[in-house]
Every structure is written in C-alpha cells, then in structure tokens.
Design a protein around this nucleic acid. Structure first.
Lengths: 204, 204
DNA sequence: GCGATGACTGGACTCACGGTACAGTTGGAA
DNA sequence: TTCCAACTGTACCGTGAGTCCAGTCATCGC
C-alpha cells in the first residue's frame, strides 16, 4: 500500500500511534497536524473528515494484518508439512509476536471501530466486517485441512472455530488494555493453541 | 444497587441503552436529558460530568454481571455435584443467555471503556481492572476445583485460564458487533466449553 | 516561458457539545 | 414554618470538527 504522498502517510502514522494510545475520539485533528507538521487545511485536503481518516487507517491495518498472517503461516508451513503442526507453530509465532509488542497491537482498531459504531459510516463498518469474514474463511480452510487428517474429538462449528482466532486476539487485547498487562493476548492465544492440540489429537 | 432517586436510575437506563447502541462518545448529554425528560441542570445535579456517569454505569454493569455469574453457576452446581459438569452446564446456560439477548449484552461496556482510555479517569479504569481481576479469581478457583478431580491434559497457566472466560465473552461480543451477527458470543462460549471438556477429560 | 494542476497554507467562520455558574422553584419531612 | 433535596432556566465559555475560500509554490507538459 504505497501512499499517494508522503504527507498522507505521515498523517496516518501519527494518527495510528495516537489512536492506539488513547482511542479515536480522544485523538484530535489539532494534535495530528501538530505531529505531522502541517496545517489544519492540509489535513482536510487529504481527508474529507475524521471518518475518512478512520477508513484509511482501517484499510492499512487490515492489509498489514493480512500480510502478517500470510507471513507467519507460510513460514510455519515451511517448517512443518503437517497442517496441524504448522498451525500450532504459527500460533506460537503469533503469540510471541504479540508478547514482543510492548505497547499493544493494532488489533484494537477493529474493536475500537466496532465499539464506536454510529460514529463511523457504513463504509467503515463494512470494511471491518469484511476483514473479519476474510479471517474466518482463512482459518476455517486451515482447520478443515487439519480435520481431514485428524478427526476432531468434539463436534464443532467450523465457522465459529475460524472466528475463534479473531475472537481470541480481540478478547485478549481487550483484557490486556483493561488490565494494563502486556501478555494477556499472547496467553490467550496459547490457550487457543492448547485447545487445537487437544481437539485434533489422534485418538488413543 | 438501589438507586438514590428515580431520576438518577432513569438517567442510567437511558444512557446505558444509548451507549450500547452507539457508544459512549456518540451519546450526548442532550439526548440523555431528552429521553429522561429532565433538564440539563438536572443531569449535572446527579453527575458531576460524563466521567461520573461512566463510572456509575460501569459499577451497575459489574454488579449485574457478578449477580448473573452467581446465579448461573449456583444453579448449575445445584444441577450437578461434579465441578466439571456444573461448569459445563453453567457455560451452556451463559451461552443460551447471550443468544437470547437480541440487541447484545452489556459486556460491551468493559471493552468500550477499555478502548476509550484517556477519556476516562483513573477511577473508571481501576473499576474495570478490578472487575476483570475478580472474574479471573472466580473462574480460576472453579478451574482449580475441577483440576483437583480431573488432571488437566495440558499444562496451562491457571490465571490465563481464569481470564479466558472474560476474554471469550469480550472477544465474542466484539465479533458480534462487528459482524452484525447475534450469535457469535454464544458460539465462542460453546467453543470454550468444548476446550474445557477436552482439557479435563479423564485420561483413557 | 506559460498555464494547468497538485499539494498545500492561512484565516475567518459555524455548530455541537461538554461543562460552569448561579439564581430561582417546588414538594415533602421535621 | 422552615429547611433541604431535587430539581428548572438561562446565560456563558472553551474546544474541536468541519466549511469556505483566497492565495502560494513547485513541477510538468506544451
């Protein structure tokens, strides 16, 4: 996602950092333009309003998240041919990555937009929805591949299981933020990993 | 939590409904006073500012959530003496309860305040934190009781496992909100139930 | 060299909303 | 009757989003 201009991407950088730190509403345009060293008019030249900014941020974040998942799980599948084991390796890598991000992970962006609903227009909300549905498909496919090899030990809804990755990440990030602990999200992912290990363990 | 006055609790009712529907920031005082049929001054008579309102809402919500957990898990333990089975019954009841709430569950309140951070004062954030820590202790104790009977099939961090209930509820609610599906949270709880079933299943 | 265009700046303005200040009203308990 | 809690009404301030618009400056095709 090469930005059209340097200024535009600079605005997005500053805005993202500020939104992650204190939320979208609490991030003022004043503050963004000060950080980006531009004028207020300059901001509105690039973004029609705060909604357009939210949309651009969300797009950027979703692309980054998809790239991250692509990277992690392709590296994991290179390390092990078995679909279950490569999934477990991938989740471990994801957990480590989250633990290494001291000031939290942009996953917040999804929850933040979800919880500020009417503040954003339909475009932003659809973007959010489509991203989560994309992750559902992605992980569902991976779980089906695993299930073809290891018969699941419990009868589970595969769509829900696909959603579980997003759910655990988001839930973990909520706790992490509320508790001011920096490892909740990675611990929750390790529990998901534990679940998958048991769910797809070969029958005795 | 009997409210001091009728008006005060009416304000909280209206505010809660509006916050659940569109978020805290998007809920204006103007709108609350119109709904409660009082004057702006009346609002500020009861609440020093929006922060005080948030705090009161959070307190009310946390009390209700605790009462809900008390109710569900005490009923569940009456239905079955075994700690694992009563936990599984309780989670099923929780899932059904969430599925029956068409317009979502106030769990949002926790995530909403978590994601609007700097908007609230330390008091509100601590309230949030203490509530989650309380739930961690509650469920951790229940899981330890189960683990005393059924040796866990995987080595898990018991604090993280205690947190998992809150995490799954919050994560599920985020998805539910973002996807505009009304059963994500209950499905995620059923997956947590499935995990616990496998984790504490008697060894073959 | 010239005009068009893209990327801005500056300033004046409106509006909504949170919040303050304070004087006045009302109904019921002591 | 007096006192107080629970309000109402009005006027006012600051902040931040968003609009409008005139002007600047560099660059690129012609």
């Amino acid at each position: 996602m090469a930005e059209k201009t340097h200024t535009r991407s600079k605005i997005l950088d500053i805005a993202e950092a500020s939104v992650l730190e204190k939320g979208f509403e609490a991030t003022s345009i004043e503050e963004i333009v000060a950080g980006a060293e531009i004028s207020r008019s300059g901001f509105f030249y690039h973004f029609k309003d705060k909604n357009a900014l939210a949309r651009a941020m969300l797009e950027r974040y979703i692309d980054a998240e998809n790239a991250l998942y692509d990277d992690i799980f392709s590296r994991a599948s290179e390390l092990n041919d078995d679909p279950l084991h490569s999934m477990l390796i991938g989740l471990k890598m994801l957990a480590e990555m989250l633990a290494d991000m001291p000031e939290g992970h942009p996953g917040c962006v999804i929850a933040a937009t979800a919880y500020q609903d009417r503040l954003f227009d339909k475009g932003v909300q659809d973007l959010n929805r489509q991203a989560i549905l994309g992750w559902r498909r992605r992980f569902r496919a991976m779980f089906e591949e695993i299930a073809a090899v290891y018969e699941p030990r419990d009868d589970v809804n595969m769509d829900a299981l696909g959603d579980m990755v997003s759910s655990v990440v988001e839930g973990g990030l909520v706790l992490q933020r509320a508790l001011r602990e920096h490892n909740s999200a990675s611990e929750q992912i390790m529990l998901l990993r534990s679940y998958l290990k048991l769910l797809f363990s070969p029958k005795a």
